[in-house]
Computed example of a mutant assay.
Amino acid sequence: MKKNFADRFINGIEWLAAIFVGIVALNIFVNVLLRKFFSTSIPDYYDFGRMLLGILIFWGIAATSYRGGHITVDLLWGAVNKRWKRIIDVFATLVLLFVVIVQTVMLFDKVEGTWKDNVLTYDLNLPTWPFYAVAWVGDICAVLLIAVRTWRLVFNPESLHDEHFDSPMHEVE
């Protein structure tokens, strides 16, 4: 199957989310080794850890929002016919899109606030706003991916990567 720009963008977001998982794990691993064997730690380890975890969360939201692979409760969805399943999917995705758009706007306020207030890390006095900005970009990517998912749900559901969309049972009657 030939991949278009949207599919390549989605794969890129997923790779970035995976890279952030690796960075968080590496930060923890190196700091544990330094503390155990050398009685020292990475300067600003705690600040880096919490900000990297925030980045990881927002990029993880971006990665899972498109695929629909996150935990869902499909009690009602499983009991209705194919037409209503599609309606529920579109409605749920639109609600998710609205919530993540509001979250993105609020996170921008956090980025702007840390920049204007010149919030710095404890040990190295590095500005914290770039970390918040990277998390915010992850949130923007989540909005874009949810918008792509909504578009595909409405106009081209077979192009989605969800397990229940791959089966012919999900087609609208």
Results as ranks from 00 to 15, higher is better:
55 I>K: 02
142 A>M: 09
85 K>L: 05
24 V>I: 13
44 D>H: 04
85 K>T: 00
27 N>Q: 11
140 I>R: 08
90 V>S: 00
88 I>E: 00
20 F>I: 15
48 F>A: 08
116 K>L: 08
77 W>P: 03
19 I>E: 07
48 F>K: 04
29 F>G: 08
54 G>C: 13
20 F>M: 14
141 C>L: 13
126 L>I: 05
51 M>I: 11
104 T>D: 05
51 M>D: 11
120 L>R: 03
42 I>Y: 03
129 W>M: 01
50 R>A: 13
147 A>G: 09
79 A>P: 09
43 P>I: 03
140 I>H: 05
137 V>Y: 00
20 F>T: 15
91 F>C: 05
151 W>M: 12
128 T>S: 03
141 C>Y: 04
38 F>T: 07
53 L>V: 12
92 A>F: 15
123 D>Q: 00
100 V>I: 15
35 R>F: 10
122 Y>H: 13
67 R>H: 13
60 G>V: 06
101 I>F: 13
40 T>Y: 05
55 I>V: 12
141 C>G: 11
142 A>D: 06
134 V>Q: 04
129 W>E: 02
64 T>K: 11
107 L>W: 14
82 K>D: 12
149 R>I: 01
139 D>P: 11
80 V>N: 03
59 W>Y: 06
132 Y>F: 11
116 K>C: 02
140 I>P: 04
74 D>K: 05
150 T>H: 02
51 M>S: 15
105 V>F: 15
147 A>R: 10
21 V>A: 11
149 R>Q: 07
108 F>C: 04
32 V>E: 09
80 V>P: 01
25 A>G: 15
44 D>Y: 00
104 T>V: 03
145 L>C: 12
150 T>M: 08
70 H>A: 09
80 V>A: 04
104 T>S: 09
88 I>M: 00
65 S>N: 10
68 G>T: 00
25 A>E: 14
112 E>P: 08
89 D>S: 07
121 T>N: 00
63 A>Y: 11
108 F>P: 04
92 A>I: 14
144 L>N: 04
44 D>V: 02
76 L>K: 10
37 F>Y: 14
30 V>C: 05
78 G>N: 15
74 D>L: 05
22 G>N: 01
21 V>G: 10
135 A>Y: 03
31 N>C: 07
138 G>H: 03
79 A>T: 12
108 F>A: 03
33 L>H: 06
151 W>A: 09
45 Y>L: 05
100 V>S: 08
83 R>H: 00
46 Y>M: 01
119 V>N: 05
